[in-house]
Structure formats: C-alpha cells, structure tokens
Design a protein around this nucleic acid. Structure first.
Lengths: 236, 236
DNA sequence: GCCCTTTTTCATCAGGTGATGAAAAATGAA
DNA sequence: TTCATTTTTCATCACCTGATGAAAAAGGGC
C-alpha cells in the first residue's frame, strides 16, 4: 500500500532488465544530487528534481518512495565507491611501506583518493562532496548518517596511525582526526570562499595546490599534538 | 505596502521605547536561532518559529519582514560581537608581544575568543556557531554571507601572520587559513560525532581539550607548509 | 496478435507555506 | 479622558508541498 511496495523491482515477466528505467533512475539521482548539494534537503522540492531530470513527479516516488529515501539513495550511491577507494588506498600504503610508515604517508593514503576522485570524476563527484560536507554539518540527522557510512574507514585510519605512533593516546588521535576532517571537508566542497578571500591568490578548484599542502599540514598537526600531550603527561 | 514598511520603528508618539516589544524581538530571535541551527533555513517554517517563541505568526513579519530577513537578523545579531571580540583579542596579543610573536600565539588569539564565548555564553551561542558552520557550507548564498561579515578579521589574521613569518607566501597563508577554519568550525559546531566515533574517549563539548590541541595543531601545520613551500621554491 | 508485466502519465488530495490587510488591544503623551 | 500611535491578534489568500491511485502507454515472451 505504501510507496515502498510500489517501488520498481526487476525479475517479473514483462521486461527482464535491459531497462531504460535504470538510465532514468540514474538521471533522477544526478538531478537530485546537484540540487540537494546546492540547496540542502529541505531547500529542494521533488517537483524541482523532476523538472531538472525531465521526468514526471510521480516517477520519483515510483522509483524511490519518499523524498527522504531519494536523498538516502543519492548519498548511498557514491558512499560505497568512496569507502572502497579509501580502504584500498590505505591497505596498499600499509603493504608497500610495512616497515617504514610515516604519519604523513598514512594521512595521504587516507585523503588522496578523495582528491583524485574529485579531480577525475566529473561534476557529479564535486556535488557529492558538497553534499557530504553539508550532511556532516547537519546536527539533526547528519551525525547518524556519517557514522553509519564512514566510521569504519576512520577507525582504520586511527588504528594505522596508532601502529605508526604507539605512544599516541587514542584521545589525541581522535581529536586530530576531527581537525583533519574539518579541513578536508571544507576543502573538498570547494565553496569558492578562498578565491575571493585571497583575492585571486588561491583557487578552490586547484586541488594540486591542496595536495602540496594539506597532507603536510595535517601530519605536522598530528605530530605536534602527540608530542605536546605526551610531554604534558610525562611532566604532570 | 511591503512587509518592510510595516516594520517596527521607535520614536512615534504612542510608546517611546520602554518597549516590551524589544524583549519579544529577542525572544523571536532566540527561537529562530535554535531552530535554524538545528534544521537549516529551509527546514524551519515561520509558524514553527512563532510557536517556539510563543507569539503570533504575523508578529514575526511585523518585526522582521520576510523569512530571509529574519534569518539575516539572527545571523547579524551576534556577528558583530564576535568580530569585536576577535579583533580585540588579536590587537591585545600584538600589543603585548610586539617583539616576540609566535605563529601559535597569533592563532590562539584568533580562535580562543570563540572557544571562550562558546563556553561562557550559554546555549544561544552554541546554536549560533552551528548556524555559522552551516552557512559556511551553503554553496548557494553562504559564501557571500561569510565574506560580508568575516573577511576583515581574517585579513587581520593573515597580515599578522605575515609579520611573524615574512618569508611566507600569501598563497600558503590563505590555504592554511582554510584548513584552520575547517577544523575550527567543525569543532565549534559540536556535532557530537567525535563522541560516538571515539566511543567515549572524547566529548565535543570538552572545549578545554580542544584548547590544549587545536592551537598547537594549526600552528604546526602552518609552520610545516611554510617551510615545505619555501624549500620547494628555493630548489625549484 | 495476445497477454501479463513494468513503466509513465494524469488528475488530484489533504495539508502546509509565506505573507498580508483589517480589526482589535494596548500604550502613554496631552 | 482623549486620541494618535504602536503592538498584537485574527482570518484569510494564493500558492506550493509530498504523496497517491487509477488509467494509459510501452515491452517483450509466447
């Protein structure tokens, strides 16, 4: 009876799944992604999404159910890809540098996949990062969403860092991760604020400049905090 | 004819400004602030604000005009206070340490006022920081708003840092500022994400722990980026 | 061509939205 | 008290919101 039951499911008799419908689903997701990123969940109406995608409003509910489920579908579509890329990157780094890992190396392995995807992945990915940054700053339900999708890879980061710096306390690693993710999210969402602020010296789309600075910045931050807190602990 | 003209203005004959109305205005702003922070501009209706404030819906339009003007009023109310506190803090630091300023000292003077206000200022200020973080991540109109209100004090920060490290390029200082502000905003908005992520090791409301780490983290980041970029420049 | 299924469209609902104008109440100087 | 003025309430408008059910169209195995 509910919208959920009317959702499309493959495997009947009529049409086995050659499916123009899949293309349409993607078109809808693309439209929704761009609009949600620009205006937020409540700032977008299903009619706007339908218009942008060039489909009937009812079709959105047919494929995705409620508006919120559409949003979740948008979020989910790329989250998995992102997680796999990061996990693979970190595993590769650990494997290649087993004996000689550095804090900066681990951090680079954690962040760089996102920068690369943002550079090579086209407009869709840029919108997606804006969306994630937005969810990250949504008190009402953003935390739960972020936790559900991104906690595992964060724990992997922290554990790897712990093996590189066994003397570091988890408290410090988690605080530093929070600082790192704040910088990273703001940078990936490419708000353009740095462009006007720096009066042309910097461009938010210039991810190569980011790469040359962000890893070193965060790594030095981690090292400084670890050193300072351990020193305080020793003398306290 | 428009709502703007019906706005309250003091100085007529009837009531000179002893004004219960001013209290009501503040009540409305408080209610709006909390709701906007939690759910965003589009996630809140004027009726919700009115209900939360315990006033008639029409009263909101009477005092503030359109919904967006109400939002601007919320944003503006504390922005000025914030700017003055930061400017005063930085001026005081420069004056007190004229000959021996450090990067970390300048950064502390820039960030610490916000931490103190958040700790001492009550629930209203906490909501406000969430609001600012949200605006900071709103592509459509957030950048313009942030620029209008907060650019001056940022330039003051950058210029001060430039006097401490004259060899640093503005490019690097602006990039590092972006990293810093990302960390700072995420931390000030106290999303609670670090609480669940760290499984109880850290608490987002524990700003004393932030103080012990964030300044050192950012300062080390700045120093590392400056050193690295200058080294690259020299050898390139 | 038939027939069952999936996909797409159309018309519409119940409720909520921001906003306004007019009336009522409150206020305080004269 | 009078009365111009401000503040508050009330009723309402025109429009938009998410969502749904029924009908129409499209597909493809047989």
């Amino acid at each position: 009876m509910t919208a959920t039951k009317s959702r499309a499911r493959a495997g009947g008799r009529g049409r086995p799944s050659k499916a123009k419908g899949l293309d349409l689903k993607e078109t809808i997701l693309d439209a929704a992604e761009g609009l949600f990123a620009r205006h937020g969940f409540y700032g977008v109406t299903t009619r706007q999404v339908a218009a942008e995608a060039g489909v009937d409003t009812a079709l959105i509910h047919y494929y995705f159910g409620a508006k919120r489920e559409l949003f979740d579908a948008v979020f989910l579509r790329r989250a998995e890809i992102l997680n796999q890329a990061r996990e693979a990157s970190m595993n590769a780094y650990v494997k290649a540098n087993a004996g000689a890992m550095t804090v900066e190396g681990v951090i680079e392995a954690f962040i760089d996949p996102l920068l690369r995807i943002s550079q090579d992945g086209g407009r869709g990915w840029k919108s997606y990062f804006v969306l994630v940054a937005q969810v990250n700053n949504t008190p009402a339900w953003g935390g739960e969403t972020m936790t559900r999708f991104f906690d595992p890879v964060v724990h992997q980061l922290v554990e790897t860092l712990k093996t590189v710096r066994p003397e570091a306390a988890y408290r410090d690693l988690y605080w530093c991760y929070q600082f790192l993710t704040g910088s990273m999210m703001l940078t990936l969402s490419e708000t353009g604020r740095i462009d006007s602020l720096s009066e042309g010296e910097c461009h938010s789309s210039d991810l190569e400049s980011v790469r040359q600075r962000l890893f070193a910045y965060c790594a030095a931050g981690f090292e400084a905090v670890i050193a300072k807190q351990n020193k305080a602990l020793a003398s306290g």
